[in-house]
């Protein structure tokens, strides 16, 4: 192997999320580990949601990125534990999401109340920064997002929901 683990991690860390290209798989927390073995490289990833269709694209992108560096023998390992959480998302990624027009997850993992949440969580509008926003639906354009509307600028926006 001509590369170190750190170098390989760096190649992979640059791969953008296919749905939200402003953040990378590293910032998202999907990339978990890189292990170099004599015959192959093992890349460990974890899914955001079990049914996330982007996972297949992540896998293809990882294989392609390493192939471009001359690494042909790659094994992808999918792990489910510890379960992915939005708490892993870096500050930098949160800022980039806001600039992209998606409200980043409000810290604190999942809403605590399972049934009939009080809705006290404040999600800021990524466009006008208003705190006067309304949840329209817990399910948005992708599995990881909820749909909100800003009551001040009246624009709808995506919120990267906490899990």
């Amino acid at each position: 192997m001509n590369y170190t683990k750190e170098q390989i991690w760096k190649f992979l860390a640059e791969i953008p999320d296919p749905e939200i290209p402003v953040i990378t798989i590293e910032e998202l927390g999907v990339l978990r580990d890189v292990e170099i073995q004599p015959e192959k490289v093992i890349v460990t990833i974890t899914p955001t949601y079990t049914g996330c269709p982007a996972m297949k694209l992540f896998e293809d992108e990882i294989i392609l990125a390493l192939k471009n560096k001359g690494i042909e023998n790659v094994e992808l390992k999918m792990v489910y534990s510890p379960a992915w959480t939005t708490d892993w998302m870096t500050e930098k990624a949160r800022e980039k999401l806001t600039q992209y027009g998606i409200a980043p997850p409000v810290k604190g993992t999942q809403d605590k109340g399972v049934l009939f949440s009080s809705g006290s969580k404040v999600v800021k509008c990524p466009r006008c920064n208003s705190e006067n926003t309304t949840l329209k639906s817990q399910f948005g354009s992708t599995a990881c997002k909820a749909l909100y509307r800003c009551n001040d600028c009246l624009e709808p926006f995506d919120y990267f929901k906490c899990i």
């Binding site: 489910y80 379960a83 999942q110 399972v114 049934l115 817990q138 399910f139 929901k161």
Partner: peptide
């Protein structure tokens, strides 16, 4: 691991 992961998702389903 599957249960811990899925629990996060079904919590939203239950609430919905």
């Amino acid at each position: 691991a599957h249960a811990a992961k899925s629990l996060k998702e079904v919590t939203y389903h239950l609430r919905h």
